[in-house]
Simulated assay, not measured.
Amino acid sequence: MFYRPANGHGLPHNPFNAIVTPRPIGWIATRGADGRDNLAPYSFFNAVAYTPPQVMFASTSAKPDRDGTKDSVANIRDTGVFCVNIVEHGACDAMNVTSGPWPREVDEFHQAGLAKADCETVDCPRVAGAPASLECRMTQIVELEGTSNFLVLGEVTGIHLRDDCLVDGRFDVTRFQPLARMGYRDYTVVREIFELKRPDE
């Protein structure tokens, strides 16, 4: 089939949500100017540069109490910092709890029963038991086409690695099995890994 997104697809569910997969999940922790902490997962997330290390995530909807966006973007606008936590398979239920449309005064760490820790380089919380956490300073918030679509870019200023995930000097994802989004209500877990050498190696 072929369809133009502007004209609709005629299917019961939007296929675009399931085409670009699997997508890593950025579990974004923020602290508002009022001192309230927030934690929410975003599957429009990725690393975008090595030097300096930079990441991005996109927020694509709004809450009625946040002036056209969500808590994460609103907090980052106010403070200029955030922390990306990597989601392991064992945390999928907690991650799902934090995806709820909770009022801004709700602390999702508490709601999901997650321990939090302070970041080292930014004034922001992080998920204490996460396999890795990336402390970030916001570099840009870009308003995208459409309603309530915002791209947040940040430079990584500090990195936490869980000790059991370091094996022979490498960050070993088989130790925690990263969770990824497939689209619709579907997720997947990274369990099988293989190595490929580039032609010039």
Score class of each variant (00 low, 15 high):
Phe2Arg: 15
Tyr3Asp: 06
Tyr3Lys: 11
Ala6Ser: 15
His13Asn: 08
Asn14Tyr: 05
Phe16Leu: 13
Asn17Cys: 05
Ala18Ile: 10
Thr21Phe: 04
Thr21Ile: 05
Arg23Leu: 05
Pro24Cys: 10
Ala29Glu: 03
Thr30Ile: 05
Ala33Val: 11
Arg36Ala: 12
Asp37Ala: 14
Asn38Met: 06
Ala40Ser: 10
Ala40Met: 12
Pro41His: 02
Ser43Trp: 02
Phe45Tyr: 14
Asn46Asp: 14
Ala49Thr: 11
Ala49Gly: 13
Thr51Tyr: 13
Pro52Tyr: 09
Pro53Tyr: 05
Gln54Leu: 08
Val55Arg: 01
Met56Thr: 13
Ser59Tyr: 02
Ser59Cys: 15
Ser59Val: 03
Thr60Ser: 14
Ala62Glu: 08
Asp71Ile: 01
Asp71Ala: 09
Ser72Val: 04
Ala74Asp: 03
Thr79Ser: 03
Phe82Val: 03
Cys83Ala: 15
Cys83Pro: 01
Val84Leu: 05
Val84Ile: 14
Ile86Lys: 00
Val87Asn: 00
Val87Ser: 01
Val87Ile: 11
Glu88Asp: 11
Ala91Phe: 03
Asp93Tyr: 04
Asn96Ile: 06
Thr98Phe: 01
Thr98Met: 13
Ser99His: 02
Gly100Asn: 10
Pro101His: 12
Trp102Asp: 02
Val106Thr: 15
Asp107Met: 07
His110Asn: 09
Gln111Phe: 07
Gln111Tyr: 04
Ala115Ile: 10
Ala117Asn: 07
Val122Gly: 01
Pro125Ser: 08
Arg126Gln: 12
Ala128Phe: 04
Leu134Glu: 00
Leu134Phe: 13
Leu134Ala: 03
Met138His: 04
Met138Thr: 15
Thr139His: 05
Ile141Gln: 07
Ile141Arg: 01
Glu143Asn: 03
Glu143Ser: 13
Leu144Ala: 09
Ser148His: 11
Phe150Asp: 00
Phe150His: 12
Val152Thr: 06
Gly154Asp: 01
Glu155Met: 04
Thr157Glu: 07
Leu161Arg: 13
Asp163Val: 08
Cys165Gly: 05
Cys165Gln: 09
Gly169Val: 15
Asp172Met: 08
Val173Ile: 11
Thr174Leu: 07
Pro178His: 07
Met182Tyr: 05
Gly183Arg: 04
Tyr184Arg: 12
Tyr184Phe: 13
Tyr184Glu: 14
Arg185Leu: 09
Val189Pro: 00
Glu192Ala: 13
Ile193Trp: 09
Ile193Tyr: 05
Ile193Lys: 11
Asp200Met: 10
